[in-house]
């Protein structure tokens, strides 16, 4: 059975901590919102975007989802605002705006 990580938090009694700290399941980090770290935010200009996808492999945070060879909007729940994608875009379609 997959671990229900909502039951594991800083107030959990010892009985709820999984033996050996093992986690059954995958990708549970999605529940942790690193987007709160951001001090600047990428903004996509859909008109300028040619769907070349060069912004997608350079993201350290897997925050540019791609479906059927087209990128979707940023995952701002997790994007840390590093700005690498903006610089990698050959068409100036991504700009970084100050703040969250």
């Amino acid at each position: 059975m997959a671990t229900d990580i909502s039951k594991i938090h800083e107030k959990s009694p010892w009985q709820d901590i999984t033996p050996g700290n093992q986690i059954y399941g995958a990708g549970t980090s999605k529940d942790f919102m690193t987007g709160e770290w951001r001090t600047q935010t990428p903004v996509l200009d859909a008109e300028k975007c040619t769907q070349c996808l060069l912004c997608t492999p350079v993201c350290p945070d897997s925050c540019i989802p791609v479906k059927d060879m087209k990128r979707e909007d940023f995952d701002l729940e997790h994007c840390k605002g590093c700005g690498i994608c903006a610089k990698a875009c050959p068409f100036g379609a991504i700009s970084m705006r100050e703040g969250q």
């Binding site: 980090s29 690193t34 925050c63 690498i84």
Partner: peptide, 10 residues
Amino acid sequence: APGHRMCAGC
């Protein structure tokens, strides 16, 4: 998956 704690731009 996203949500790891590596530094921004790692």
